[in-house]
Design a protein around this nucleic acid. Structure first.
Lengths: 109, 109
DNA sequence: TGCGATATATCGGTGAGCGGTATATAACGG
DNA sequence: CCGTTATATACCGCTCACCGATATATCGCA
């Protein structure tokens, strides 16, 4: 799983929402470091539905615009938790190294 | 950067070594979670040299087998530090969520 | 003598991510 | 009244990292 998909899942883990809103939320969650373009967004959503990670919750029509709401499935929630653990493990594997300070480059506080 | 390349860089950050040794060390660093096949290894090494992340340190012939030693460049060390910070930031972005325990699946202690 | 480990190399397939483009509507500004 | 921006979904094709397969060569062990 790559970063755009990961943050998209984080957004959907917070609450059920429609694609565009999830993409905006994902960008905010990453402090603007990543951006999710249309091609990434709907390709990822289709893929994740196909894989059973997320599911279409409902569809609405607001002011003539269709909105498709997605929610994280139980499988997806477990998958996401595993992914978080994987990220932590990967970061932890570098803790014994003496690496230069790069916190600012990564946009950390 | 994906996991195989990341752990390969971690291995080379520890010490200058040849490709095969770095791959084995990378697998150990990930607690055996990832495996680096020949296709991944030499493709990644070529790519990283091209990008200036690592450099060929020297070549040796030990018992009829050629060994090409690689070292992490200064640029590569900074790049790796940035990547670690990115991983930490991504994991931290999930800290406010109530996710199921999946530490065991990820092979964490 | 034959298998597994060591060590490097190349080729081709797969699949995620992404840019570009298209469509449609509403709100806002000039 | 028209152009731009924001909202919202959809599709096509490209790139690139990863990976399996294959090839070559040597050494140690059974």
């Amino acid at each position: 799983m790559r970063e755009p998909t990961y943050f998209l899942l984080l957004a959907l883990a917070e609450e059920t929402q429609h694609g565009y809103a999830a993409a905006k939320r994902a960008e905010a969650l990453s402090d603007g470091r990543i951006r999710i373009t249309a091609g990434t967004l709907y390709g990822a959503l289709d893929r994740l539905v196909e894989a059973g990670t997320i599911a279409v919750d409902r569809e609405e029509t607001v002011k003539g615009r269709k909105r498709r709401y997605y929610r994280l499935t139980d499988d997806g929630r477990l998958e996401l938790a595993t992914e978080v653990a994987r990220l932590q493990a990967a970061a932890a594997a570098a803790s014994h190294l003496d690496l230069p300070a790069a916190a600012t480059e990564a946009g950390l506080a």
